[in-house]
Design a binder for these strands. Structure first.
Length: 152
DNA sequence: GCCAACGTTGGC
DNA sequence: GCCAACGTTGGC
């Protein structure tokens, strides 16, 4: 099994929004970065991912989700009315992909970014490297376990 | 294929 | 809201 970390801005989609969804299966739309896209395409059914809140008052890891469907074309790229529309992504040759995820757990408390940064075992995690803007990134099994131990 | 200009991300 | 550090675009 592979492990991942995926960012979401809580103002558009938070862990609480995720919990409230009755079927709790969501398309992870709108990734428009090639490196992140390539990671999405590597994801396998049953892989687990940390849910990370970005661009907010308290950035950090807030829970866990699981990949419920492997990569398929992100159809919002074909939709002129979508904020994620990309005229260069053609239905005959899609540029952007998404995975579907389902909710697994919300942590009792956030693991804040500053704690992740101060943990030496996580120094290779893309998230804590200066200037990293990746919204989808791999997490090693060792890093996954380290982060789980940081929960209160 | 270089690289300046521009747009975006995301912590602070 | 600021702005550094990125990624992308497009002229040449």
């Amino acid at each position: 099994m592979n492990y991942w970390l995926m960012k979401s801005e809580p103002e558009s989609f938070s862990i609480d929004d995720f919990m409230k969804r009755p079927r709790q299966i969501e398309p992870w739309e709108g990734v428009r970065n090639y490196q992140a896209r390539n990671y999405l395409r590597q994801m396998k059914l049953g892989d687990k991912a940390f849910f990370y809140h970005s661009n907010c008052k308290e950035p950090g890891i807030v829970g866990i989700m699981e990949i419920s469907k492997e990569a398929t074309p992100d159809k919002t790229a074909f939709d002129k009315k979508s904020q994620y529309y990309d005229p260069k992504s053609l239905e005959t040759n899609p540029r952007w992909f998404l995975v579907h995820v389902h909710f697994v757990a919300k942590f009792n408390s956030i693991i804040p970014l500053h704690e992740l940064k101060s943990e030496p075992k996580l120094k290779n995690l893309a998230l804590v490297k200066t200037g990293s803007r990746l919204s989808v990134m791999p997490v090693s099994e060792a890093e996954w376990k380290t982060i789980l131990k940081m929960k209160i």
